[in-house]
């Protein structure tokens, strides 16, 4: 138990520190790297809680895909982060204040909640397959009890895909495409123009 809590505090503190560094570090590449560190630590926290599937998901999706994408974007687009950051010092106090108030309120309300006295339905709702591992347990409900939600999620992804295509796809006239019909229907007269060229004059065209 003590080892677990030791690790918990380690991962938690590292993830907190690195997430603060994401926001404050001057170099955007550093920011992204800190973000990746945060994700790693979060994944570790999930493992500690026995949710290894979520941990792996976090690694694969957030680090493998999203964070790397961020890195590409940051490196390939020349964004002047200094100007974007300009307003920060001006707005930071208010932002911090508002954030602090919200934080305190959340903390107070969570601490003020007596979870022991909650109605018994809570335990019922917990996944009842304690003897099998987390991934399998998720799979067992995801495709049966929550199939509806799973399908909905699929639709959302479909919309996301269509949206991405719609917004980025442009018909550009400069791009040449192969048109089989055009090629087949082309005759000799359309393609070749024979001209007699006088010596020493060249063609006017």
């Amino acid at each position: 138990m003590t080892v677990l809590s030791l690790f918990f505090y380690l991962f938690a503190s590292v993830s907190l520190t690195s997430s603060v560094l994401v926001v404050v570090s001057r170099n955007p590449v550093h920011s992204v790297l800190f973000l990746i560190l945060t994700f790693f630590n979060c994944a570790a926290l999930f493992v500690l809680m026995g949710a290894e599937f979520l941990a792996m998901l976090l690694l694969v999706v957030y680090i493998g895909a999203i964070a790397v994408l961020f890195l590409f974007v940051v490196m390939m687009l020349n964004i002047d982060f200094a100007t974007l950051r300009k307003g920060m010092s001006k707005n930071a106090p208010i932002g911090v204040l508002v954030g602090l108030v919200l934080f305190i309120e959340i903390v107070v309300s969570i601490l003020g909640m007596n979870f022991e006295e909650l109605p018994n339905s809570f335990s019922e709702a917990q996944i009842t397959y304690n003897e099998i591992e987390n991934t399998r347990a998720l799979g067992m409900v995801l495709y049966t009890q929550y199939a509806y939600l799973f399908q909905c999620a699929g639709l959302i992804l479909l919309v996301a895909m269509i949206g991405a295509i719609v917004l980025t796809h442009r018909k550009r006239d400069t791009v040449r495409r192969q048109s089989v019909i055009k090629q087949v229907l082309r005759s000799r007269d359309q393609s070749i123009d024979i001209k007699k060229v006088e010596i020493g004059k060249g063609t006017s065209k």
Binding site: G87, N91, I94, G95, V98, V101, L102, E105, V108
Partner: peptide, 20 residues
Amino acid sequence: VYHYAFSMFFGLIIFISWHF
């Protein structure tokens, strides 16, 4: 956008604080 987001946060905090 950040003004708008701030307004949303602000509203949220006002309402939560009201409950507090």
